[in-house]
Amino acid sequence: MAETKASEPIISCRRVNKWFGNFHVLKDVDLEVMPQEVVVIIGPSGSGKSTFIRCINRLEEHQEGQIIVDGIELSHDVRNIAAIRSEIGMVFQQFNLFPHLTVLDNVALAPRYVRRQPRRVAEETALQLLERVGIPEQARKYPGQLSGGQQQRVAIARALAMQPKIMLFDEPTSALDPEMIKEVLDVMKQLAQSGMTMLVVTHEMGFAREVADRIVLFDEGRIVEMGTPEHFFTNPQHERTKLFLSQIL
């Protein structure tokens, strides 16, 4: 296990099970994430890794088991879901920026309407965040006018605007042209260095090796192997892990 940076886990999943109809997507998933930890989830497509992190902010509902985020258990209680979602930022593969709003409005929207910040405050924060992701000059443009990498960085800024404790990344670079991947990964590295708790689903092994505290391999809805990058890349134990690594490296 990686060294713990705090005593209590911020996310703890116990025996999580989920089905899509009759299809068993998640099978007894157990995972604990400590504050400020970066966990990278890898695995073949269809292995349930996206579904798993979408369960953490309740975009998907799990049917069995327990997910506790920052001390609150996910249940049908609407207030719990709202409280948890405001603690968790999420970045999607397809960016999902709001095309009818300017970049600045995209970032400032949630703080204004969910946190009820005055417009001026929210926009100032938004501008700072855009500076942090390196595109302050695009604030007045619409998402459709930006490149994919720029859009994904706006999406990161938008998620950060709610000052979340946890960031979820669902294949953030999969829809990007190769030369744009780096600019997004740089922002994510910088975010990891600042101490953000991150759960990242990705195929970027370089990023995983460099940034992750722990790597988790999903296959057929379950966790196959979990460990530090050194363990993973130099001394994998499970046959499935060895096969997976041999295919992508």
């Binding site: 979602r85 999420m90 999607f92 998620a159």
Partner: peptide, 8 residues
């Protein structure tokens, strides 16, 4: 989904 993830 993006709006929900933001807490709207």
């Amino acid at each position: 989904e993006a709006a929900r993830a933001l807490g709207l």
